[in-house]
Simulated scan of single mutants.
Amino acid sequence: MNHEFMEALDELEKDRGIDKETLIDTIEQALLTAYKKNFGAAQNVRVEFDKDGGDIKVFSQRVVVDESDLYDTFLEIELKDALEISPNYELGDIIEHEVTPKDFGRIAAQTAKQVVVQRIREAEREIVYTEFMDKENEIVTGEVARVNKNVVHVNLGRIEAVMTQVEQIPGEHYKAGQKIKVYILEVKKTNKGPQIVVSRSHPGLVKRLFEFEVPEIFEGIVQIKSIAREAGSRTKMAVKSIDEKIDPIGACVGPKGSRVKNIVDELGDEKIDIIKYSDDPAEFICAALSPSKVVKVDVNEEEKSALVVVPDYQLSLAIGKEGQNARLAAKLTNWKIDIKSESQAGIEASSNEDDQIDA
């Protein structure tokens, strides 16, 4: 060890935020392990790292005991022998004797290097972990590094993130070198370093995209109350304005539809329905089933369910292809929605009246 090594430790502390004292303690422990491994594990020793000059010394430690208590001469020394070294020694004192091997410098240098490299890796991992923890639930732009089976690896600069199949937009294809926007879904700390899971199918991606595109949302004038999404196909988003002069839907759509178009393009032509939020459940459910017209909504507050009646010719539109429109409306409002046509509702009402007469 030399002054250059100590200066390097100072630089590490300054540039990477690795505490020098902690690093030296770690090096001393590693050197102690290295000494015992190479020169006998039976030795009771202490390693001293000179913090000024960088010199390494190894000291054997023995406890002063009475002659009758002597058990191990490697670990203990008789009082009479200790007194020959110094008349000040008493029972229970520890006597140290330097036993630094001639070739220990090489082992020490190699061990210290390994410790420093390991600490640098750990520090860098911690920095990356902290950086991306702050970005959790945010959007970042990355580059597709490679695609292995159903997992896409995305280069985020200092680390690669993974996007599993369930977090991908169905039907979207990814190629190495392709720039994509991803939503940071989860940041985990593992033994191998931070693991970052990103998504393009999460509703949060749509929310963040609108925040970037729509100043009124970013400023908090227009609020996104809820989002229901089936990635790659369709999204419903409920918005509310805290300023009566601002139309929340118009703000999201933008001049000539420019704002929403940018988001649709980013999501691969995914359809986006923007509706006006209402605190009135019936009104909100009615809007959520857009573009279908609604004749009547009967709500059950206790069960949080609603019976919606639509014109006969609008029934298929209200339900949507494979039930998508009704399914997204239920997710958006968090209400159970039962949709019937006017004919179906009329037949049931008539049947109920007959039952009452018969009774």
Rank of each mutant, 00 (worst) to 15 (best):
I274M: 08
N44S: 12
I274E: 01
E230V: 07
T190M: 09
V214L: 06
K336V: 11
K179S: 12
D19I: 13
V294G: 01
E219D: 15
K113E: 14
K57W: 00
I224M: 06
T33Y: 13
A329S: 15
K296L: 11
R119T: 10
M1E: 10
E213K: 10
D265C: 05
M6Y: 06
D52I: 14
T26Q: 14
I184D: 01
V260E: 03
K181S: 12
D81I: 03
P255T: 11
P311A: 09
D10Q: 14
E21G: 12
N352C: 00
R119F: 09
K113D: 11
P87L: 10
V63R: 13
A318I: 02
M1L: 13
D93T: 07
V299A: 05
D355W: 00
E211N: 15
I94D: 00
G157F: 03
N300M: 07
E244Y: 05
S241M: 10
S305Q: 04
N300C: 06
A34Q: 11
I227G: 02
L328Y: 04
I85A: 09
D81T: 10
Y174N: 12
Q43G: 13
V154F: 01
A329C: 11
K36S: 09
S226F: 09
R46I: 12
H202K: 06
S278G: 09
S68P: 00
A112K: 03
L332P: 02
V99D: 04
I249Y: 01
D354W: 09
R121C: 13
D103V: 12
A288T: 03
F49N: 10
V253W: 02
P87H: 11
D66R: 15
G220R: 08
K331Q: 15
V197M: 11
V264N: 04
A282D: 06
I339P: 00
E244M: 10
K37G: 07
P194C: 04
V162S: 08
L31R: 02
S226G: 10
A41K: 14
Y35Q: 08
E167Q: 12
G250C: 10
V308A: 03
R259S: 05
A123N: 10
K135G: 02
N191V: 11
I246W: 05
N300S: 12
I107P: 06
K256D: 11
L317S: 04
K331C: 08
V64E: 02
G220L: 07
I94Q: 08
A231M: 03
D243L: 11
V144I: 14
R46P: 00
F59C: 03
K340E: 08
S226D: 13
